[in-house]
Design a protein around this nucleic acid. Structure first.
Lengths: 94, 94
DNA sequence: TTGAAGGTTCGATAATTATCGAACGTTAAT
DNA sequence: ATTAACGTTCGATAATTATCGAACCTTCAA
């Protein structure tokens, strides 16, 4: 996890929206990747989740049928305290 | 000032380095734009400072001869508390 | 077992961004 | 006044990134 990669990941409105949504859920919550209501094709959505994964912000479990995303809250808080608080806002980036 | 624009501004190693350097200075300090030791042409350097300016992270005064940059500490802390603390690290992004 | 729905990868394309050199203006020192 | 140093803008180019459709795989339900 490095800050440049994280800032890059969060500098896209769709991805910031995903993370903000996950922050609002209860800790450890698993979300279907389709549940965010993004106006994107499956290919593009998959691309964005991959970037969030590679930045270390989320983890994902594959069920073939669907994919479940979880915010890596503890790891993020440990490595970059204040980050999640910073981006947990009511403002919608989309 | 919006978070997307700020994350975009900070997701470049040169620009993150500039902000980190300014954070380490005493509050209100003015820095010559050449004083950061960036390995870039003047045109490119000017480009990066413009992006930091437009994101609201720095202010600049033009002296024709040279340009002085200042971190907009109070405004940033007011709008996005925790941001500067988050990126004030010893790690060098370059 | 067949089909529907979702996720991923691949290849292509469009849009954005980083970088540079050249030209120009400003300031300061010679 | 002339020169040198710096910043900015412009135009061009290379690199990165966002987006999509198609093909393929997995799971689940009919």
């Amino acid at each position: 996890m490095n800050l440049i990669q994280i800032f890059k990941a969060l500098s896209d409105p769709n991805r910031l929206f995903i993370i903000q949504s996950l922050i609002e859920d209860e800790p450890g919550a698993e979300r279907h990747c389709t549940s965010f209501g993004l106006q994107l094709t499956r290919a593009t959505r998959s691309h964005h989740f991959k970037i969030l994964r590679e930045a270390g912000l989320i983890s994902q479990v594959d069920r073939g049928n669907c994919s479940l995303a979880t915010l890596r809250r503890e790891e993020i808080d440990k490595e970059f305290p204040g980050l999640l608080q910073l981006i947990s806002t009511n403002w919608n980036p989309l």
